[in-house]
Simulated assay, not measured.
Amino acid sequence: MFETLEIFRMAQGMATHAAARHRVVAENIANADTPGYKARDVQPFAEQVQGGSGFKLRQTRPGHSAPATSGHTYRSSEQRDAAQSPNGNSVSIEREMVRAVETTRQHDLAVNVYRNALGILRTSIGR
């Protein structure tokens, strides 16, 4: 029931995006000394939502056509503006640490949105 409410879907999408970005940041940090490794990042969440590529169609009524697949997709891509070291590696530990903090804040925001929406829902039904 709760997964059909848009606020819960948005909170889940934000949390999923944060998890995907955490994975990419961790891969970048793990490969900081790998020669020729190119730093990667995922598309910002706002662009995913506005572009429509982060969310798939969903069937809201029996008469509507069913979606082909469900879920969120987040693809990492190479960072074009990253400076390279002499061995061809483009990972900056400082930049990755900033991204890790941003991603943690995004995940915390998603959890708070979910928690507050759940509180409003509980209040509205009298529990």
Results as ranks from 00 to 15, higher is better:
100 A>R: 09
92 S>A: 10
70 S>L: 03
60 T>N: 12
24 V>S: 06
79 Q>R: 15
74 Y>T: 02
80 R>N: 03
72 H>V: 11
39 A>R: 14
48 Q>P: 04
44 P>D: 05
40 R>D: 01
34 T>R: 15
66 A>N: 12
81 D>Q: 15
47 E>T: 03
85 S>M: 02
71 G>F: 07
72 H>G: 06
55 F>E: 04
32 A>R: 14
62 P>I: 00
31 N>H: 10
42 V>H: 07
56 K>A: 12
73 T>E: 08
71 G>N: 07
107 H>T: 01
108 D>S: 05
67 P>E: 07
62 P>L: 10
44 P>R: 02
69 T>Y: 07
30 A>Q: 11
33 D>R: 11
57 L>T: 05
37 Y>S: 11
74 Y>C: 02
66 A>F: 02
72 H>E: 00
31 N>W: 08
78 E>P: 05
72 H>I: 11
73 T>K: 06
63 G>R: 11
112 N>H: 11
46 A>L: 07
76 S>P: 09
26 A>W: 07
40 R>Q: 13
49 V>W: 04
60 T>F: 06
42 V>Q: 08
92 S>G: 08
85 S>R: 15
92 S>P: 05
87 N>I: 00
66 A>P: 14
108 D>Y: 00
56 K>N: 09
47 E>S: 04
42 V>S: 10
59 Q>K: 13
96 E>D: 08
96 E>I: 00
110 A>W: 08
65 S>L: 15
90 S>W: 09
100 A>P: 02
90 S>M: 09
99 R>S: 12
109 L>W: 10
66 A>G: 14
44 P>N: 09
104 T>D: 09
108 D>G: 02
23 R>F: 07
93 I>Q: 11
78 E>I: 12
75 R>T: 06
76 S>Q: 15
108 D>V: 00
82 A>Q: 11
46 A>P: 01
106 Q>M: 14
48 Q>C: 00
76 S>V: 03
100 A>M: 15
102 E>P: 02
46 A>N: 05
89 N>I: 00
24 V>F: 01
39 A>K: 14
41 D>W: 05
92 S>W: 01
33 D>Y: 00
78 E>T: 15
70 S>K: 07
43 Q>K: 07
24 V>A: 09
37 Y>W: 12
38 K>T: 05
26 A>F: 04
52 G>R: 01
25 V>R: 11
89 N>W: 00
86 P>T: 01
44 P>I: 03
51 G>C: 04
107 H>V: 01
66 A>S: 12
70 S>A: 05
50 Q>E: 01
84 Q>H: 13
29 I>G: 09
97 M>D: 09
90 S>Y: 06
32 A>C: 08
107 H>S: 04
71 G>C: 08
31 N>F: 07
23 R>Y: 03
114 Y>N: 10
65 S>D: 14
27 E>T: 04
55 F>N: 04
112 N>D: 12
86 P>D: 03
23 R>E: 11
97 M>G: 06
70 S>F: 03
89 N>A: 06
103 T>A: 01
38 K>M: 02
52 G>S: 09
101 V>W: 10
26 A>P: 02
28 N>R: 14
109 L>P: 08
